[in-house]
């Protein structure tokens, strides 16, 4: 469904030139949920931004559904690939009601049956119709993130890119949103690419994942490997240990990568 090969990107110029992605390649099958794990600066979000089209000076090949996509995207691409942002407080227009936020993409893509679609997608993300005409500031963080998911779903895409969709939420809300994302994936047979720094979330959500560090893919692991701790790279092992919680003795052994 999604093939990335030899993706490279540079930021800055001259001596400040920074090789932010180094030959990143992976392949995702239809209906699969794929994770990108890494610490800040590892380039995991940059990969998503290249796929989604927010960045367009990358080099390499990105193939969606067998078609090579160019740097410049057309309308058809946006109907196939949608993105959910990390921060639910920043990703909704503060002066637009939920209704307007959800109708906007339908208007751009000239859908008919707009009211019905808005109602349907709201109920799909478990938000009742009483939320429809509220402004974002009248919603909680979890509810806003549901709206963001609804906005991504309303164009009926096949691939959804998730950029740390729950890291700004409380754990109890995180569980609800993760469950919702899993249910929707099953129902609509969606393909997910999920960025997270949290191994536990990746383990719950994804079948396979790429561990990234400083712009490169360090290791590709399956969820089973992650769950059993069957890891080959030291970087991944350290990340795994750190995710298990505080252990004074283990910390002294940490290295910098």
């Amino acid at each position: 469904m999604l093939n990335i090969s030899n993706l490279n990107i540079y930021f800055g110029h001259g001596s400040e030139k920074n090789h932010a992605l180094k030959d990143v390649s992976f392949e995702i099958k239809k209906g699969e949920s794929f994770g990108l794990v890494g610490e800040s600066g590892s380039g995991k979000s940059t990969v998503l931004n290249c796929i989604s089209g927010l960045l367009n000076h990358w080099q390499g090949t990105i193939e969606v559904d067998g078609e090579v996509v160019s740097q410049k995207r057309d309308l058809a691409f946006y109907r196939k690939v949608q993105l959910v942002f990390q921060d639910p407080y920043g990703s909704l227009h503060p002066r637009h009601t939920i209704d307007r936020t959800l109708k906007e993409p339908l208007a751009i893509h000239k859908f008919t049956d707009i009211n019905h679609r808005v109602e349907k997608v709201l109920s799909e993300v478990d938000l009742g119709s009483q939320f429809r005409f509220r402004y974002p500031h009248q919603l909680s963080g979890g509810q806003r993130q549901r709206v963001a998911v609804a906005r991504a779903l309303i164009l009926e895409p096949e691939i959804i890119l998730l950029d740390e969709p729950t890291s700004a939420l409380d754990v109890s809300i995180q569980a609800e949103v993760l469950n919702l994302l899993q249910d929707i994936r099953k129902e609509r047979n969606l393909t997910y690419v999920m960025v997270s720094h949290d191994l536990a979330v990746i383990s719950y959500m994804c079948e396979n994942c790429a561990v990234m560090s400083q712009g490169s893919v360090v290791e590709m692991i399956s969820a089973e490997q992650l769950q059993s701790g069957d890891l080959s790279q030291n970087y991944t092992k350290q990340l795994f240990t750190a995710s298990k919680g505080y252990d004074r003795a283990a910390i002294d052994l940490f290295q910098d990568f």
Binding site: A175, N179, M205
Partner: peptide
């Protein structure tokens, strides 16, 4: 208990997360 249960775990999966 509710808070602990709704955390995803690295080692376990496939069940739905319980919500609070």
């Amino acid at each position: 208990r509710g808070l602990l249960n709704c955390l995803p775990r690295i080692e376990g999966r496939n069940e739905r997360l319980s919500t609070l």
